[in-house]
């Protein structure tokens, strides 16, 4: 005998109820799955616009700096510059850094400048913001193949270094980023050794294009862009422009740099923008300018060849990349 026919007829669900229940279940599954799928997509898609929280920088004077931008090069918007950041201490997702760095404390702040100098000194944030600064509109070229045009506010690094009186035996300058696992949620899993360190040769550090930036679009730097003070070296790949600097040390040897420590075959000490020397995993001949549809040719030394090429006369760029 078939076991199903043993069920008393009173316990059999009427077909109408069964179908109603079926309709309800299907609707619930439809809704649930669509919300889950859509939610997952949303969770991994870029965040919405960022807002400016900076305050005006009072000490900005008119700049005598001649921007070398082409007529077709537009300055990127604040949202683009402050919404797409490589700052691995906070997140390796460029569109997530702004939100994760929101509460980063950048005041009080001090920068310790020492090493081979006559007058080592600790600069407080207020000293740095008091320095006479100017707007510099620079191209910014990331090693990943994207670029922007950014209106920085800052002063030449040479100006700060002259205050500490570099000794003649100093050949290089080492920089270090603030590091704090409590404030920097991704600092333990970024996949690179931290604190982040960078370095320049003395002549690069003293070059008038090399900037210590304290602002962006006339206001103090957003946290995600390296507040309260960062280096900007426009003819080098972006990772050389170290953020949130706490320490500047003059030395007599080439200092270690974070990315060349992480992967010496891919990132060198110099890392000058050079369309002819490719990164092993991507070409450097072209770049995607943020906000533009197509790609553009990458310029030698990021377009600052006339100003900086003499620093590297006779250098083999395939070896010293």
């Amino acid at each position: 005998m078939n076991p199903i026919s043993k069920i008393p007829s009173s316990e059999i669900t009427p077909e109408e109820t069964f179908l109603n229940r079926r309709f309800f279940m299907k609707t619930a599954i439809w809704a649930g799955s669509a919300v889950a799928t859509g939610g997952m997509y949303r969770a991994f898609s870029p965040r919405s616009d960022v807002k400016s929280t900076g305050s005006e920088i009072a000490t900005v004077v008119d700049s005598t700096f001649q921007s070398s931008l082409g007529a077709d090069e537009k300055v990127n918007s604040f949202g683009e510059i402050a919404g797409y950041n490589n700052y691995y201490e906070f997140s390796t997702d460029k569109s997530a850094v702004a939100a994760k760095a929101k509460d980063f404390v950048t005041d009080p702040w001090s920068v310790e400048v020492g090493g081979l100098v006559g007058k080592p000194r600790v600069f407080g944030l207020e000293d740095l913001l008091k320095m006479e600064s100017e707007e510099r509109v620079y191209r910014f070229r990331c090693v990943e193949g994207w670029s922007m045009v950014i209106p920085w506010v800052g002063f030449p690094l040479a100006k700060l270094l002259s205050l500490v009186e570099p000794r003649s035996e100093a050949t290089h300058v080492a920089f270090e980023t603030y590091y704090d696992l409590k404030q920097m949620p991704d600092a333990g899993s970024a996949g690179i050794d931290l604190p982040y360190v960078e370095g320049l040769r003395m002549d690069e550090a003293m070059h008038p294009l090399t900037l210590l930036a304290t602002g962006l679009y006339g206001k103090t730097l957003p946290n995600q862009n390296g507040a309260p003070i960062r280096l900007v070296v426009p003819w080098k790949y972006g990772f050389k422009s170290i953020k949130s600097v706490v320490k500047i040390t003059l030395t007599n040897r080439e200092p270690p740099t974070t990315w060349s420590l992480a992967n010496p075959g891919e990132y060198g000490f110099y890392s000058n923008v050079n369309p002819k020397v490719d990164h092993p995993r991507w070409s450097q001949a072209k770049e995607r300018r943020i906000g533009e549809a197509g790609s553009r040719e990458t310029l030698m030394f990021n377009g600052y060849e006339a100003q900086v090429a003499h620093l590297y006369a006779g250098m083999n760029f395939e070896e010293d990349f």
């Binding site: 870029p46 949202g79 919404g83 797409y84 460029k94 994207w146 995607r288």
Partner: peptide, 10 residues
């Protein structure tokens, strides 16, 4: 126009 700052990458 909400594919983020670098839509190509996303």
């Amino acid at each position: 126009g909400k594919l983020g700052v670098n839509p190509a990458e996303f």
